[in-house]
Write a protein that binds this DNA or RNA. Structure first.
Lengths: 112, 112
DNA sequence: TTCAAATAAAACCTATTGGTTAATTAACCG
DNA sequence: CGGTTAATTAACCAATAGGTTTTATTTGAA
């Protein structure tokens, strides 16, 4: 059906990986730079693996620059996931409408 | 940081679970009804497990009705996930702008 | 050409996931 | 009560995920 979404959502389900994505909104970075905030709590190979997950999900792209790999955000996959969720946007908005209506009902009750 | 997102995205990373959510946009359903389209390819307990994942992620709620469990969408979790992704919306829109600019550049080259 | 740095790959371990079948619980109905 | 239906729980299994440490590869620089 939509196999790409499997990998994208799975990649987003990890806080380390979401933090890496957040970091990349501030600009490109290589592996060591990306790893630096996490090295107190995990090893460099762990970060390499996380980056591979993000890459296979299409969330980042890596370009080679001598012995450094520059990583940058690839918004396509995020866009696809967001579009899938947009299917439900009306649903939760309508749900808020119902809450709104409910609260207005309460307010009217109170006036009586 | 935002532990709920872990469970939400993990729950969305499975096509069976996404299909169940899609089904629930058409209205409440009990477990047997939800399971019915999948019973060719997996067992009822498998569906029970998927529903538990969705429930713990806050994506659905189950209410008890005699021996039936009615399930319905709970848009809160989806909303949280969508709001997290909205952080990136400007990023991919700007990326499309860049593509747009690039294509306009190409067009101008062509005119010369 | 040798050294050090950046990164990846390999081998391994444990916990979790997604599935199974079989047994159990809970509720209604004759 | 006894049977049937709805759903969960239990026990199990194979595959994957997320981490480790150790080894290898690639590249720039002395």
């Amino acid at each position: 059906m939509n196999p790409g979404l499997d990998q994208t959502f799975a990649a987003l389900a990890d806080p380390t990986r979401r933090a890496i994505l957040a970091r990349l909104t501030h600009g490109e970075a290589n592996v060591t730079e990306l790893a630096q905030p996490f090295l107190k709590s995990m090893s460099l190979p762990a970060i390499t693996k996380h980056l591979k997950v993000l890459e296979r999900a299409g969330l980042i792209v890596k370009t080679r620059d001598a012995q450094w790999r520059q990583c940058r955000l690839n918004p396509n996959a995020l866009k696809d996931a967001a579009e899938w969720m947009d299917q439900y946007r009306t649903y939760w908005e309508e749900s808020l409408d119902r809450l709104d209506a409910y609260l207005k009902g309460k307010a009217n009750e109170h006036k009586k």
